[in-house]
Design a protein around this nucleic acid. Structure first.
Length: 822
DNA sequence: AGCACGCCGACT
DNA sequence: GTCGGCGTGCTC
């Protein structure tokens, strides 16, 4: 029997329902380089389509008849080590994704190849007449041959598809069978350099307008695009689409018609801040020293238990992190430090590089793909020993990991928003266990689950109670907005807050106002019939953007020009919604001539940091913004913080609503009085007696935690149970609902299994998702309240596979999330 | 999912 | 007789 090197491969073409390691044999020339963690291309499926894959295991074995060979190697050296492969396998069973999806998440995007199918004539000498004769029985073969011959004998599949439409693939396969053409797959690196596509007119503005003007009615978008380009000159394609509502398709059409030309523009490299100032030696106060001692003791134990560093705002957790990382480096090991937001990385980076110098690397999502990839290579080569970054930095390929630190561990940004929706804390736990490394979760307001873990002994709790320089907490006033209503004040700013703002203005001190809601959504409403324009593809009202005068959908990206009169009755349209713009107007009315800086999703695109710099340097009296103003920003002169309405996030339909509100309020209140002067905070609310608001006002984590934990125990929420959210989606509401009911019934069956029944699992639903329709797909949810253990996950996995395999569910899709944060 | 194979009805 | 519809089953 013939033997060969046999490898197990995670294949990208395998969907979840059939995902497993597939065996391939390795042809002799590859056998030395086809190592574990090397990416490959392989034939897959009946049609032997070329698919990407990665080698998970390797052995010498019998070359069975049914095995197919590896087609090519994509790497000279492995891109994943044994730990990385183990992590991918773990992620598959934890997040219900395929092995390959897990690998893709672990590796940096800059590393990925684009598989390009190139079709060419099998015999380059073949003349057109013979080719036509050979393919005479294949319908629609002529246009494809036309292009192939015009392009000199070969063309890539994308070009062919663009020119020949729907059935290109089928025709190509038929031509392949007739031995007219062959297909080759070329792996092309997605080049790391991020550039953006720019467009400009390829003729004078007058000429271009003259060309599109006659068809202004039938092709309004073309006309709009040309008008914009005529006025603005060279513009990025993304901006053109934003301001005109045209799609990329329209732009390409204009390119084809010779009216505009595309070009690429390099995005400027962010200058890396390396102002390594003289770093004074770190002096810890007794409490910090005690915390440090406890953590180092844990570090030296063989298999350290994880620690919760619970320190009030301003207790100097960062100094403890720094000392700990120094200690880890001294032992010849490496460290990962995670922060929740990109905005916070430069601040933290400055501190870290001051103490640790060149061994620190920053890794976060706003790095350009190429930079990210370069950093990744430096880390792999061992040049970097400390990685600081946001969520995805947890996948940094450090060797000999000693510690992972998650700062502000309760933040929801640690959970990925797209599948696999991993949580950096869970990945960190896995990595730490495997490397005998220490996991440190730092927070002033830990997640309820984490605090419960500390209470029940799963984490070692280390406390920091003292505020830095013994500063006192801000004086907090809870202002009852109902009182203002009784007094005839209908605005967003009540009497108490106004008085405090005036006081601050007189003293020449700065204030921060928080509007507790996401984004800045304003809608249009007809003043006469009440009609609200909705998204044609989603079940949400469209949001009005004043920057471009358009109505846009945040879910699917639909965009249309805002109507001047009501499409239903012709009445006048009004803007409604309490966005930051509205509050800004109110502020101008109440405090004429006072400078206000606004920071929200609308303004943030043109520079988060710029706004903050202006606030600090130009000493603008008031900064008004959404949640982002609450996060870790320190300004010397801010002595007043106002929360416009504390209630909004309390009544969201989510089990973490109270926790989120408490965290936000505590954080934002902590922004006041960071300098030498004492701070004040005003929390406006319609429910001043609410326990969450009261405990946030007192900065009393313990009492919030205890009442929240009682509630969660009663309602069987995490940490007392795990919530699996099943979402069924599809284009037809009836089918979706039917499929969802099927899922519920299957889950109820599963729950009766003896191995699960002991935990008393419960199944609820189906209920329509909070936004029922997104992108013309209806979504229904089923909730399973149970335990996230191996048995449950196996059952869930089985259900997912069965759902995908059932033909009755065609067109619908099912996915699962466990304990989603959002 | 994506593809081939196979088994039936409407055409040259 | 053959083209193409869709139902069925497999993916190393």
């Amino acid at each position: 029997m013939e033997t060969a090197v046999i490898v197990k491969v995670a294949v990208s073409a395998a969907p979840y329902s059939i995902d497993k390691p597939y065996d391939y044999w390795v042809p002799e020339p590859f056998s030395d380089s086809a190592l574990l963690g090397v990416r490959v291309t392989v034939p897959f499926g009946r049609g032997n389509r070329t698919s990407e894959g990665i080698i998970l295991a390797r052995a010498i074995g019998i070359k069975r008849k049914t095995l197919k060979p590896i087609s090519s190697l994509l790497d000279r050296e492995p891109v994943l080590d044994q730990d990385g492969i183990a992590l991918a396998i773990w992620m598959r069973q934890r997040y219900f994704c395929t092995l390959f999806e897990a690998v893709k998440t672990i590796l940096p995007a800059g590393l990925w190849y684009r598989l390009r199918e190139v079709w060419r004539l099998k015999n380059p000498e073949l003349d057109r007449l013979s080719a036509d004769r050979m393919s005479s029985s294949i319908p629609r073969a002529f246009p494809i041959l036309d292009i192939l011959y015009a392009a000199g004998g070969s063309a890539d599949a994308e070009t062919l598809r663009a020119a020949c439409g729907e059935q290109t693939d089928a025709v190509l396969r038929a031509l392949q069978k007739a031995e007219v053409v062959v297909c080759e797959t070329a792996a092309k690196r997605k080049i790391g350099d991020k550039s953006r596509r720019m467009a400009e007119l390829s003729m004078s503005a007058e000429e271009a307008l003259a060309l599109v003007e006659p068809r202004r009615r039938s092709a309004p978008q073309r006309y709009e695009v040309v008008r914009l380009l005529a006025a603005a000159g060279r513009t990025s394609a993304a901006d053109i689409c934003y301001f005109t509502g045209a799609s990329m398709r329209t732009l390409r059409g204009l390119e084809k018609a010779g009216i505009l030309t595309f070009s690429e523009e390099e995005l400027l490299r962010l200058p890396i801040q390396r102002q390594v100032g003289p770093a004074p030696p770190i002096v810890l106060n007794p409490e910090q020293q005690a915390a440090f001692d406890t953590l180092t003791a844990l570090l030296s134990s063989g298999q350290p238990e994880a620690a919760l560093l619970h320190g009030v705002t301003g207790s100097g957790k960062t100094l403890v992190y720094l000392r700990l990382v120094q200690e880890v480096l001294r032992k010849g090991r490496t460290a990962i430090v995670l922060v929740p937001e990109i905005v916070l990385t430069p601040q933290m980076m400055r501190k870290f590089s001051a103490y640790l110098g060149e061994t620190v690397a920053m890794l976060h999502s706003s790095l350009r793909m190429g930079e990210r990839y370069d950093q990744w290579k430096r880390i792999r080569r061992g040049e970097i020993r400390v990685v600081l970054g946001t969520r995805s930095a947890i996948f940094a390929p450090l060797k000999n990991l000693g510690v992972v630190i998650l700062d502000e561990e309760q933040e929801s940004s640690y959970q990925s928003e797209n599948p696999p929706r991993y949580h950096a804390r869970e990945i960190a736990k896995f990595l730490c266990a495997r490397n005998q490394a220490l996991l440190v979760l730092g927070s002033a307001t830990p997640a309820v689950e984490t605090a419960y873990g500390a209470e029940s002994g799963a984490y070692r709790e280390v406390l920091l109670r003292q505020r830095y320089n013994a500063r006192s907490l801000p004086r907090v006033t809870v202002a009852d907005l109902r009182q203002d209503i009784r007094n005839g004040r209908a605005g967003m700013i009540g009497e108490i807050l106004q008085a405090e703002l005036i006081e601050n203005l007189e003293r020449g001190e700065q204030s921060i106002l928080l509007l507790n809601r996401r984004g800045s959504s304003r809608m249009l409403l007809c003043g006469e019939c009440g009609h609200v324009p909705e998204c044609p593809r989603c079940s949400v009202p469209l949001t009005y953007h004043s920057a471009n005068g358009r109505l846009m959908c945040h879910y699917c990206g639909h965009s249309e020009r805002a109507p001047e009169s009501c499409p239903a009755c012709g009445g006048r349209m009004k803007q409604i919604g309490a966005g930051t713009q509205k509050v800004e107007e109110e502020l101008h009315e109440l405090l004429p001539g006072v400078g206000v800086l606004r920071m929200d999703a609308d303004t943030v695109s043109n520079g988060h940091e710029m706004i903050l710099n202006r606030f600090e340097q130009e000493h603008v009296p008031i900064l008004l913004g959404t949640q982002m103003v609450a996060k870790g920003l320190d300004f010397e002169d801010v002595t007043l913080v106002g929360v416009l309405s504390a209630d909004i996030s309390l009544y969201m339909d989510h089990y973490r609503a109270a926790e989120r509100t408490f965290n936000l309020l505590t954080q934002v209140v902590g922004r006041a009085g960071r300098g030498s002067r004492p701070g004040r905070a005003v929390i406006q609310t319609y429910t001043p007696d609410n326990e969450v608001i009261q405990s946030a006002a007192r900065q009393d984590y313990k009492s919030f935690y205890q009442s929240e934990l009682r509630m969660r125990r009663m309602r069987r929420y995490p940490p007392f149970a795990d919530l699996f959210t099943f979402t069924v989606s599809g284009p037809e509401e009836g089918n979706v609902l039917r499929a969802a009911i099927g899922v519920r019934e299957a889950l109820r069956q599963i729950c009766r299994l003896p191995e699960l029944a002991a935990d008393e699992p419960e199944v609820l639903g189906p209920a329509p998702a909070p936004v029922l329709k997104v992108n013309n797909r209806y979504r229904y949810r089923i909730l399973l309240i149970g335990r996230n253990n191996r048995q449950t996950r196996e059952q869930v996995s089985w259900l997912l596979k069965r759902f995908a395999g059932d033909r009755a569910n065609r067109g619908t899709n099912l996915f699962v999330d466990c304990n989603p944060l959002e």
